[in-house]
Every structure is written in structure tokens, then in C-alpha cells.
């Protein structure tokens, strides 16, 4: 982050985020700033709160308190953390392309229909333009031949690439990846990482929750290590992976390598 000029605008900002499920505190005050073009990787053990933190950014989880700001626009919240303005939230969600661990493609729609669903039926983009854009994206992720196929007939890696193309088809300002390769067979991980790497290389803003340490080290501009709902350590990947300071991070890196 420090390498960016001050003029680079903020894409995603999380301030002092708390989240509890009942009496269980999952996030205990975490903050994050992603400037445009940043690739922020969130790493941490299971139960560290990393997925919850990502899911709070587009309010798939309701924060208990804190503030989310997308492209300079604070998301309106009620005192209990629930979104106060449904239309604002819908608009903001359209600017954040989310990719899930389990792909979550719509099984009753073909790959192409999955891609154009939101652009055509929610964002009111002309159908022809959406289809042209979708075909370009499918070619990019190597699925040009699969546009008329239903998701159940694709491999996991193909489904995840289609899901990435679906998110991109909304022309989002930033991408959120929630453990995008965790549900894949090992031999299919590479093809998905390759697509994500290409997005990072073209300067897309993204926040990536991942277990792939080697990948995080290669693509991230900033890495956050979460432990028990708090940021234990953060910094550029070389520092975090090359010279971890805290014992917990050292231990964690040893356990996953």
C-alpha cells in the first residue's frame, strides 16, 4: 500500500469492524483499506474470522458495529448494523463482484444465462451488449465452448471460472474472493488461480481470502493475518511471509507449509 501515490483513490475501506454471533465474538475490531489496484490477501486459521470479514464488506453478514465505505461512499447502517438503505446496498453490491468457495452458479440457467442474468435483468443493460460482453469474458476464462451448458455438467474448476466471469460481467469496481479454490480437487486449483492472477496483473482491485500461501505471496500487494478476530500482523507479502514477527504467524506459516 505504501508504494501507491497518495492520489490513488480508496476502493474499499473497513473501519473498526465488530461481529458477534450470539455471545461468540468473531471479529473484534478490524480495519482494512484497499486502494484502487490493490490486491489484499486475508490469511488465517479456520475460525479466525477471515471469511466473516470479507462477507461483512457486502453485508452478506450484518456487522455488529463498524463502518464499510465503498469508493468513498459509506454504506448506510442502522444502529444494530443492518443496512439502512436497500437500494444503496443493491447498487454497492453490483459494484463488488463476489466469488464463493462453492461457486454458487444458478443450476437452472446455462453458463451464458448465468453471466447475463444480473446485467440484463437487474442493471438493465441491453441484452445484446451483455451477451457480447459475456462471450468475451467466457473466452478469457477458457469457456467459450461452454456457454450453452448447464453448470452441473462442468468440472469444479470450470464452474469456478464461470463464476468469476459471472462476477466480472457486472463490470464491478472490485472483486471479493472467498476461498475460491478450497472446494476444488488439487489438480483443478491451478486453472482457477491462473484466472485470478491475470485479474491481479491487469490492476483490478481485489480482496482475497485464501489458504494458498504461495499464491497470496505472489499476487498480493498487502497481506493481513487474522487470528481470533483480530489483525495479528499485516504488511507487504515479502515481510509477512519472509520475516514474520509474531510467534502466532510463524507457527501458522509453519503449519500450512
Amino acid at each position: 500500500m505504501g508504494t501507491k501515490p497518495y492520489s490513488t483513490p480508496e476502493a474499499i475501506r473497513v473501519d473498526d469492524l465488530y461481529k458477534s454471533f450470539g455471545t461468540h465474538d468473531v471479529l473484534k475490531g478490524v480495519s482494512l483499506t484497499a486502494l484502487e489496484g490493490d490486491v489484499v490477501a486475508i490469511i488465517g486459521g479456520s475460525g479466525s474470522g477471515k471469511s466473516t470479514m470479507l462477507r461483512c464488506i457486502n453485508f452478506l453478514e450484518t456487522p455488529t458495529s463498524g463502518q464499510i465505505t465503498i469508493a468513498g461512499e459509506p454504506v448506510a447502517m442502522r444502529p444494530d448494523g443492518t443496512p439502512a438503505d436497500r437500494r444503496q446496498l443493491e447498487r454497492i453490491r453490483q459494484s463488488l463482484g463476489m466469488v464463493f468457495q462453492s461457486f454458487n452458479l444458478w443450476t437452472h440457467k446455462t453458463v451464458l444465462e448465468n453471466l447475463i442474468e444480473v446485467p440484463v435483468h437487474v442493471m438493465k443493460c441491453p441484452r445484446d451488449a451483455a451477451i457480447a460482453r459475456a462471450r468475451k469474458l467466457l473466452a478469457r476464462v477458457g469457456l467459450a465452448e461452454k456457454e450453452a451448458v448447464y453448470p452441473a455438467f462442468l468440472s469444479g474448476g470450470q464452474q469456478q471460472r464461470a463464476a468469476i466471469a459471472r462476477a466480472l460481467c457486472m463490470e464491478p469496481k472490485a472483486m471479493l474472493f472467498d476461498e475460491p479454490t478450497s472446494a476444488l480437487d488439487p489438480e483443478l486449483v491451478g486453472e482457477v488461480l491462473q484466472v485470478i492472477r491475470a485479474l491481479a496483473d491487469e490492476g483490478r482491485t481485489m480482496i482475497l481470502v485464501t489458504h494458498e500461501m504461495k499464491f497470496a505471496r505472489e499476487v498480493a500487494s498487502h497481506v493481513i493475518y487474522l487470528h481470533n478476530g483480530l489483525i495479528e500482523e499485516q504488511g507487504p507479502p515479502e515481510a509477512l511471509f519472509g520475516a514474520p514477527k509474531s510467534d502466532r504467524l510463524k507457527q501458522f506459516l509453519k503449519s500450512v507449509s
Partner: peptide, 25 residues
Amino acid sequence: PGQIEAARAMGMPPVKLAWRITLPA
């Protein structure tokens, strides 16, 4: 549930989500 969550994450309004995603699925 992931199919409904994906639609929510993409900013689909509730009635449209029911009509275009949940009911056909």
C-alpha cells in the same frame, strides 16, 4: 442457499430474486 446468496451478493432485489432465482430453482 448459496444460489440465493449469490443473487443477493449481486444486488438482486428481493422480489426479482424470488421470481427469477428461487421459484425456478
